[in-house]
Design a protein around this nucleic acid. Sequence first.
DNA 1: GTGAAAGCGCTAACAA
DNA 2: TTGTTAGCGCTTTCAC
Lengths: 342, 342
Amino acid sequence: MKNVSIKDIAQQAGVSTTTVSFVLNGKAKEKRISEELRNKILKIAQKLNYKPNQLARGLRTGSTNTVALVVEDISNIFFASLAKIIEDELDKFGYRLMYCSTENNEKKAVGIMEMLMHRQIDGYIITPTLGIKNLLEQLATDNASLVLIDRYFPDLPISYVAVDNYSGSYEAIEYMLKKGYSNIGIVSMGYEQVQMEGRVKGYIDALNDHKIPLQQNLIKKIPFGIPESRAIEEISEFISSQPAMVAIFFTTNYLGTYGLESLKNLGKIIPDDIAVISFDDSDLFRLHTPSITVVRQPFEEIGQKAVRILLDQLVDKSREPRQITLKPSMIIRQSVMQTIES
Amino acid sequence: MKNVSIKDIAQQAGVSTTTVSFVLNGKAKEKRISEELRNKILKIAQKLNYKPNQLARGLRTGSTNTVALVVEDISNIFFASLAKIIEDELDKFGYRLMYCSTENNEKKAVGIMEMLMHRQIDGYIITPTLGIKNLLEQLATDNASLVLIDRYFPDLPISYVAVDNYSGSYEAIEYMLKKGYSNIGIVSMGYEQVQMEGRVKGYIDALNDHKIPLQQNLIKKIPFGIPESRAIEEISEFISSQPAMVAIFFTTNYLGTYGLESLKNLGKIIPDDIAVISFDDSDLFRLHTPSITVVRQPFEEIGQKAVRILLDQLVDKSREPRQITLKPSMIIRQSVMQTIES
DNA sequence: GTGAAAGCGCTAACAA
DNA sequence: TTGTTAGCGCTTTCAC
């Protein structure tokens, strides 16, 4: 069964393709095509099970009703949840999603961006890596619809929806400090990204503001992309090597997950031996024994806002970029003791 | 900056678009185009930052190098992990992924399928819902490249990669029976799907084979798509209403997660008060206290096999459908007691 | 009210 | 060795 085209319909109806196109695009009224003919065409289209070829339409009209979502890793629950929200929101407006994972790999990210730019994508929602900065600038110059999420480039006039990583982290550390903890460690990614910088900076400043001297050996960076087992080992070694460390802050969900595994392997009791807070929430953190206190990102709102901004831009290309920073919220659970004697 | 087309290059190089097209498609040798001209064209293309318009190419060649992945819910870790594997595998062969979630919603699923069929997608990897059976048949008749995953229609001659749900479930129940448990409950989805049927059937047959009478009140179905809080309540009520139930089997990861939350809320101790096994593995199950025994699906292999079959079909349209059933594996952990006195 | 025809950007059979 | 040309399926201007 070959694909039926507008031509087949025109033939069967004994009219031109133009007329068919008008009818199919709901312009019958506007073009004052007779009701009778309209119905005839519609009926034939239905009978033939006509499906407009979106490629041809896209080629002609220049728009594809497709939005690209570029995330770090779709199998990370944070991005997966975000992806779902974004898909849902876009769906309401008739847009489809094409998604790609960069894995924080610069080569891959560049490849993905170039591929997308070939595909006449209408809009982009992107978790950028450092290496695609110039491509993003180019996109922005070309007046493409573009929204960054999760991280961004402060010096680029591009819309973004992000979270106040700094204050999220600051609050978490301050919370621990107020509970009496002082030797607090932090596990972050080695890869330098805006959002991680903010989270580490929040940690440093909170200590500073509370007159706790910063100890470099309590700061651990885990390179992105190393195998899970290796990461867990590194975290375990880190914890073992710092017996004075009474609390630990993980700057992202998978590091927190690795951390829990490390602590379990080491036989450490939370919060008695060591207190724990992680950035990002998950089922694991919520249902863990003890439950883990977290800094939660409002991913629903991030997704919704990103889509809203993107759609606005799609409609009005000349719109000023909008840059939104949302507040994360601490969810207090049981992984930090209420008071600590030291 | 407007998009540069092949025509612009031809103009600048003072040659025809044909020549440019040949060079750009690596057919210079074949068409015996002079090395000199080849380099000139390549240089100009580079300078102009030429990006082939994939829509036009797709329209012309009939293929888009795009594969669609239709899953139940991209925010479910099982599907998200699968999606990542599939994306990785396809990437190796130059294919891109467009993914959609059906949410097990028939209307949505049909809409997605129709949308995809408009888009000249090269191949489909699909977690089907019941309602798209006829669309799948149509696709198969049209000789599209198509692989089902996770579930399938036994009577349709369409390739699939699935898991032996029946035996996975059977083994889990048998394991519990051998440990001395007999009043074993099961929590499944209300929605009738092949894979869930298999899991429930495995439960029933295992009981049967061990001469344990089936008790309908130990079988709980949770409708797909009800809010999480409601599902947790339903499971809690189910557990409370069956005090004789000493073990419980959850047929999928999110039901298992809800179940753990319910048990936590009820203050039930695993495995002392009640033993637990869940289908699907997750960080939560692995790191839970106690860790949860699971029936793990080999999602890496599912993804890889699905892609492999799809690519084979893409190359050779006449290939017979291949239907693969993989064995799940039980991971014994601590949520079932080693021996039980009754 | 309806149709002819151009053209979106690309490929490829055929011509030269 | 390179160019001419038709056409993929659709939209839309302009003409009748």
